[in-house]
């Protein structure tokens, strides 16, 4: 969720969308993890919220892979 480039230019509705609305899928969900008990590095994960199965792991600089 990127910070808006021109926050003051947003309507109330757009600001509300930015502030409060997030994806909540039953299925593949992209999230950022930190390996806090180990190497302390941040990385991205795609997890299936129905099973908690990890579907993909990739570096923060990489784009989300397409899962077949």
């Amino acid at each position: 969720m990127a910070y808006p480039e021109d926050p003051a230019g947003l309507s109330d509705e757009e600001w509300g969308q930015y502030l409060f609305f997030r994806d909540n899928p039953e299925g593949e969900f992209a999230e950022r993890w930190s390996h806090s008990a180990g190497c302390r590095r941040w990385f991205n994960v795609v997890r299936d919220t129905r099973s908690n199965r990890i579907r993909a792991v990739y570096l923060p600089a990489q784009t989300r892979p397409v899962i077949g």
Partner: peptide
């Protein structure tokens, strides 16, 4: 599961499950 059902009606909700 409300946000899943609502999404089929094109309605986004500020919910986290």
């Amino acid at each position: 599961h409300t946000s899943v059902v609502a999404k089929t009606a094109g309605l986004d909700l500020p919910l986290q499950t």
